[in-house]
């Protein structure tokens, strides 16, 4: 069964995987050199093929095969008809677009979509740039030991589960937490941080930043390492200061990676996380904390309306695909390489 989250995620890496030219290059050179026979190429390339096989098999089994399960979006799917799961697909009643009708007619669904998009937009502005800043900061540290230490410390929270992260925030900033107790001792009225629906979006973004800023910086650090140091030396020799070097060398060097990640993030615009929101839903209420994934959980998974859940997943995937295509096109217009390009 393909979870509602997977469909969108499949498209992005798959598209990215096909993107780089190497697959095309040998073909071009082969044509010039009189294309070798299939047998000869197999003999030549089999170690490479063998190395790709497991990844391809995983992709097939865990991404492409479950994608077929999306047919239940058009069914009143009952997993218990027939003698086995395949027959359940075949014998469930086909109801056309009934699930989509129910979904699009549900005001709760649109509430969830709106919340999700708001949070995505907010995090694009207030979360997305932070790993870039961190990477630049780390890169400018001279001492390798200090950099290694800071890097480990900021990576670590990425491996914590959301339960742990939320508990940590409650213990620190909650009404019975460290901060509140300190404030009470100082004779102040503690702030309401964990249960305020109005500032919930800031809270979840802060939690995400704490958890994932270090992890997100890895890619940018790699991109920074790829910038030719000669450029900096030449610019310095020409009298460029710190800020000019950053503006004219560092940021342009990072730009392709930034654009690539931005496009991928847009493709995921309708996913902002699940556990983080389900854990804090009671604290701030549905109006603030309902996102698309929690909506699907409560209205489709918990009530076994599998068809409805698949319909919501398809919706997410289609919107994600459209956003990726549009953003990619825009990137091309602006002269960037984007996620992929037609030859």
């Amino acid at each position: 069964m393909s979870g509602p989250g997977t469909a969108g995620a499949v498209d992005a890496p798959a598209a990215a995987g096909q993107a780089p030219p190497p697959t095309r290059k040998p073909r071009g050179t082969g044509r010039r050199r009189h294309r070798a026979s299939l047998g000869a190429r197999l003999r030549r390339d089999w170690p490479l093929l063998a190395m790709t096989a497991p990844a391809a098999a995983l992709l097939l089994v865990f991404h492409y095969l479950p994608t077929l399960g999306n047919v239940i979006a058009f069914q009143d799917y009952n997993p218990f008809v027939g003698d086995d799961p395949v027959e359940a697909f075949l014998y469930s009643e086909w109801i056309g677009f009934g699930n989509f009708e129910a979904l699009f007619a549900d005001p709760l669904f649109w509430d969830a979509v709106r919340n999700t998009l708001t949070i995505t937009a907010f995090q694009l502005v207030f979360f997305f740039p932070l790993p870039i800043l961190l990477a630049i900061l780390l890169n400018s540290l001279v001492s390798g030991r200090v950099r290694g230490f800071v890097q480990s410390v900021v990576y670590l929270p990425h491996f914590f589960s959301w339960v742990l992260v939320v508990t940590f925030f409650v213990q620190m900033l909650g009404g019975a937490g460290l901060l509140a107790q300190e404030m009470r001792e100082a004779g102040m009225q503690p702030w309401n941080i964990m249960t305020n629906p109005d500032t919930f979006i800031v809270l979840v973004t802060a939690e995400s930043v704490w958890k994932d800023i270090g992890w997100g910086a890895i890619v940018f650090l790699a991109a920074l390492a790829a910038i030719d140091p000669n450029l900096y030396e030449a610019a310095a020799a020409d009298g460029a200061g710190r800020w000019r070097r950053m503006w004219h060398i560092t940021l342009p060097g990072l730009r392709p990676v930034i654009v690539l990640l931005l496009i991928m993030r847009l493709g995921d615009a309708l996913s902002v996380g699940f556990e983080q929101f389900i854990l804090q839903r009671e604290a701030v209420g549905r109006d603030a904390a309902e996102v698309l994934d929690t909506f699907v959980y409560y209205q489709a998974i918990a009530t076994q309306q599998w068809g409805l859940g698949a319909a919501a997943g398809l919706f997410k995937a289609v919107v994600g695909l459209i956003l990726i295509l549009a953003a990619n096109k825009l990137a091309h217009r602006l002269g960037e390489q984007g996620v992929y390009s037609k030859s």
Partner: peptide
Amino acid sequence: EGLVHPDTVASKG
């Protein structure tokens, strides 16, 4: 009136 423990208020479970 704040008679319920904040942990009960703040987080599920």
